[in-house]
Design a protein around this nucleic acid. Structure first.
Lengths: 198, 198
DNA sequence: TCACTCACATACGAGGCGTATGTCAATAGG
DNA sequence: CCTATTGACATACGCCTCGTATGTGAGTGA
């Protein structure tokens, strides 16, 4: 029964490397993160890295997948706690904007990810955040609350608006007041999807 | 009067390097563009590069400034040709989406630029595109066509939506039909800013 | 004509990535 | 219980790239 000993150790090391990579990529950026330092920080060498992952890019893939999954889960919870679908959509947008304030998400998911791995919409897990937004919009159209727009188009543009807002807020000198303006503007834009004005 | 001989040659070489950099950065991406190859392609060495620009990043700055200026000029023309301000705003958005189809703009301005140089809103020239959008929105508010929203917030979110749409279109298998959907959705979202629905 | 400047080339060192090779513990089989 | 094999990881090497320090020759002013 001592069969899983090596597999367990390997999973442990994979997790350690991903944890270290999240830290390094978030603080130094992908390009400036040294694989030697990163692996040494958790008591390993680059040997472990190239054995567990394809290459440096492969490690970024793993990190991105993990963070993306966490974000999707958080958005799901926010949406489900809202009293109506429409308010859920708005809450999702706000939550997304606020999440992008976190340096880890901002740097890895919003900046380096697209630059290194290409268009996020083609990431495996298919950008779980977008998926959730689209599902909500589809339901709202069926409810008759939202105009019969193209679901994917609306979802992507809403996400893009939220993303832009997030980057703006993150770079602002006074994030708090800017955050309010951004969320307000997001709601105004989103209301353009409504069948009739509120 | 043969005073400008060296200065003229220098300006020439600067231009050549920027041209080569636009080509290299657009096709290979910033990280994978070799400065040796890039300079050799125009008959120079890295010596010229580090003399004319601060470093590799400095060359990217120069390229970004040039492209940004061109984009702003194109958007200005589009806006001025529209019959009304509101239609000008929509036309700007569409034009922006279409511009992001160009690999050069997509790769350099939308992907590598933010990742390497940081938040575009803090670029010198202050992101001329955004500036134009904001001016238009301000005018529309004064006309009473648009709700009294925060100008910067609305401008940024609109730009973000357009950018997202552009990346989507660029990565699509069928850019043409996707472009239509994207532009439609953009108009719907933008209409959320209107004082009364159209 | 001569000294000086400066735009650019050349030479050098440091560091990073990817791969080929080595090593030792964990398993499987007899 | 002993041995062979696997596989996870470490070590060592080569190649490339960036940035800088130094060299050089054409242009410039007196």
């Amino acid at each position: 029964m001592a069969k899983g000993k090596r597999a367990a150790a390997m999973a442990e090391n994979r997790a350690k490397l991903i944890r270290a990579a999240r830290e390094a990529f978030a603080t130094q950026g992908y390009a400036d993160a040294s694989m030697d330092e990163l692996t040494a920080a958790v008591g390993l060498t680059r040997g472990a890295l190239y054995h567990n992952f394809e290459d440096k890019k492969g490690l970024l893939w793993a990190v991105v997948e993990q963070i993306d999954g966490e974000m999707a889960e958080r958005l799901r919870i926010v949406r489900e706690q809202a009293p109506t679908l429409w308010q859920g959509l708005l809450a999702e947008g706000s939550a997304y904007i606020e999440m992008a304030l976190e340096p880890e998400i901002q740097r890895i998911i919003l900046l380096d990810g697209p630059a290194v791995l290409g268009d996020p919409s083609k990431w495996p897990g298919e950008n779980a955040c977008l998926d959730i937004t689209m599902r909500t919009i589809r339901a709202l159209i069926e409810e008759g609350v939202v105009k019969p727009v193209d679901v994917e188009a609306a979802g992507r543009l809403l996400n893009g608006a939220a993303l832009s807002a997030a980057l703006w807020v993150a770079a602002a000198d006074d994030p708090k007041s800017v955050l309010n303006k951004a969320v307000d503007a997001f709601r105004e834009l989103a209301s353009g999807l409504l069948r009739k004005a509120v």
